[in-house]
């Protein structure tokens, strides 16, 4: 059974130009202990979809779904109070910029301890003990001293470790990591990713990894979801997707990677830009930039089932 089941998730914003679709009909399943990658460029709706799961889309944003179920619990029917009890305990999230997502006015130890107090009802001494244990698990040296350090005293990598400690504090069953390493240096990125996957394996957590970088998911995620302008374009097993992309967008995205190009040759480019929320085409969202586009692409394609996975294209590159 799926740990998380999402059917037809929509995130919309009402504006003077009409309704803007940040996320448009997203389906998602994740099994316990699975690693799912969500890849997309800016404006693809990958972060908005995850914020919607956590109930973090503020008004005037509007979230609708046919099914939104976590571990058998219907998140749509749930009252905000019950949902708050779930979020942070069973579903946790790591945000992109550790420097801006931690509160500068409180110590690292206090911020991690807050989660433990709210969800597990731990008292002060127990919180401290458990927090230091968590700091040690995420590889922060001298955790007793770091416990009372403020975020500005720590480096970006250390702050991200503290964020991870906070996220895993209550043993979540689903961890959502939104570009966890984008703001960090290369050698630190590698450390953080290694830590994240080590914790994922040890605890058997399901992990959703959101990234703009195809290379990051290539060696970590079992399945990948490629998003473009609010819709899923392709969802397949990572290795088959990398070897034989089914959607022209995925194929073009892979070709545009410099590491895939032979040096001294021109990079393959995708003409034009990602459409904004207010200027989306009526047909296939990628059609204006697609080199395979033909008449039928003026009609928005539905998801087609492949031998494994799905693709949203009238003429997928593999059958």
């Amino acid at each position: 059974m799926s740990l998380l089941e999402v059917r037809n998730l929509n995130v919309t914003f009402a504006s003077s130009h009409g309704t803007l679709h940040a996320v448009d009909g997203l389906d998602l399943d994740i099994a316990p202990g699975e690693v799912l990658g969500i890849v997309g460029e800016s404006g693809s709706g990958k972060s908005a979809a995850m914020l919607a799961l956590l109930g973090l889309i503020p008004p005037p944003g509007h979230v609708t779904a046919d099914v939104l179920r976590f571990d058998g619990l219907d998140l749509l029917q749930m009252r905000p109070r019950g949902r708050r009890r779930l979020i942070g305990r069973d579903i946790a999230m790591i945000f992109q910029e550790p420097m801006t997502s931690l509160n500068p006015c409180f110590t690292i130890g206090w911020q991690i301890g807050e989660t433990l107090g709210v969800h597990l009802g731990l008292r002060r001494a127990a919180r401290r003990e458990r927090t230091i244990e968590l700091l040690r698990q995420v590889g922060i040296p001298a955790p007793e001293e770091r416990f009372s350090a403020y975020p500005h005293l720590l480096s970006g990598g250390m702050n991200q470790r503290a964020m991870i400690a906070m996220a895993i504090a209550c043993n979540p069953r689903l961890l959502i990591a939104d570009e966890p390493t984008t703001a960090l240096d290369v050698t630190i990125q590698k450390q953080i990713m290694t830590l994240l996957f080590q914790l994922q394996r040890e605890r058997g957590m399901a992990l959703i990894l959101i990234t703009h970088d195809m290379a990051v998911v290539s060696d970590t995620a079992e399945r990948v979801n490629v998003m473009y302008a609010g819709q899923v374009m392709e969802q397949r097993m990572t290795q088959t997707l990398l070897a034989k992309p089914a959607h022209p967008y995925t194929a073009a995205l892979l070709d545009a990677l410099p590491e895939r190009a032979a040096a001294d040759r021109r990079l393959a480019t995708i003409p034009g830009v990602v459409p904004g929320v207010d200027d989306r085409p009526t047909g296939c969202l990628f059609a204006p930039r697609c080199r395979f586009a033909f008449e039928r692409c003026a009609v928005r394609p539905a998801l087609h089932h492949l031998s494994e996975g799905v693709v949203r294209c009238h003429a997928p590159l593999v059958q």
Partner: peptide, 14 residues
Amino acid sequence: ATPGIRNPGAEAPT
């Protein structure tokens, strides 16, 4: 440390 499609990333991080 650079993630890459050619780089399976088996080595331990620095």
